[in-house]
């Protein structure tokens, strides 16, 4: 490894810590969020340097992009609910008490990490050995959708749960904001097809190259967020069952695949090798739709208006 590369890595690592510190410490909340988004983008760079391009895509799209959008939207709503509440200079009384303790804990943790660095154990060999039977050639997708697909099933359910929880709280009535200018609308008409294509590419590529359902879903969700920003709303007749179907079909389809496999006498989520590739693509396509719909609806912050009376 060249000196230049070491320098870049050291700078990137320091930059991450510095940005995190500023995001947490700067007095203005808006700046804090912007710094947090910058932190997320720097994290994506760090993932690239760590040879984790799949994580880098997920971090940029979800960690920085959509989390940032959610934070900014929440801040805007907060401004309307409690204009004085966006000042963040209030601190708990015992501000300096835990600092020393934390530094000590951090030092202990650092030592433990250093002790593992020389020869960390991993599963590279096992993944490589079974990759041929997994139905895909991107090892990360193989782990996510096949070797540890059960984790992923639970994870798409976590996303669905978050949305149901948000709906059960009914944060506030839908916004009635001023119509966006023609510029945003035009921009959207140009960007939307690009984003949809990009999502489709990421979904397709995930089988053999960096990408996959989560990255694709996040990009498609970003398209939805842009559309919401431009003032587009779902037709009222689409906000009932059709919207719920879009949200549930990802986890629901995954569950149905699990049931079908179980009924054929296989263990939970064991794909027949010949069908593995096709099943993974099916699960990922449905998951992409649901992830996009869920993230966009979470961004909007409330149940779409025309929900049938419960």
């Amino acid at each position: 490894m060249s000196l230049l590369q070491t320098g870049i890595d050291a700078l990137l690592a320091l930059g991450l810590v510095w940005l995190a510190w500023r995001a947490l410490a700067c007095p203005d909340l808006f700046r804090g969020i912007v710094l947090f988004i910058a932190f997320g983008l720097l994290m994506a760079l760090a993932w690239v340097r760590l040879e984790a391009p799949d994580v880098a895509l997920a971090e940029a799209a979800i960690g920085a992009g959509l989390t940032g959008a959610l934070l900014l939207a929440a801040l805007a709503r907060l401004n309307r609910i409690a204009p004085a509440g966006t000042r963040a200079d209030t601190r708990e009384a015992w501000r300096n008490a835990p600092a020393l303790l934390l530094v000590l804990a951090g030092a202990g943790l650092g030592l433990a990490v250093l002790s593992l660095l020389p020869e960390p154990a991993g599963l590279q060999a096992q993944v490589a050995a079974e990759l041929g039977r997994s139905g895909v050639s991107n090892p990360v997708t193989a782990v996510l959708l096949n070797f540890r697909g059960y984790d992923t099933l639970l994870e798409v359910l976590v996303l669905l749960l978050a949305l149901l929880a948000a709906w059960s709280l009914e944060a506030e009535p839908p916004r009635r904001e001023a119509a966006p200018g023609p510029v945003l609308d035009l921009l959207l008409r140009l960007l939307l097809p690009v984003l949809v294509l990009a999502a489709a590419y990421l979904l397709w590529a995930g089988a053999h190259a960096p990408g996959g359902a989560f990255q694709a879903g996040a990009v498609l969700g970003a398209a939805g967020v842009l559309a919401l920003l431009a003032g587009w709303r779902l037709q009222p007749h689409l906000t009932g069952l059709p919207l719920r179907l879009a949200i549930v079909i990802g986890p629901g389809g995954f569950l149905l695949v699990a049931w079908a496999l179980l009924l054929t006498g296989r263990p939970l989520l064991e794909y027949p090798p010949a069908l593995a590739g096709a099943l993974i693509l099916l699960i990922e396509t449905l998951a992409t739709l649901s992830i996009a719909a869920t993230l966009a609806v979470l961004f909007q912050g409330s149940r779409p208006a025309a929900e049938p009376p419960a």
Partner: peptide, 18 residues
């Protein structure tokens, strides 16, 4: 690189945004 932690982190990122 070991792909298993990569997959775990992607899971973690989705859990975090939820």
């Amino acid at each position: 690189p070991d792909p298993v932690p990569h997959a775990m982190v992607i899971t973690g990122i989705v859990v975090a945004v939820s």
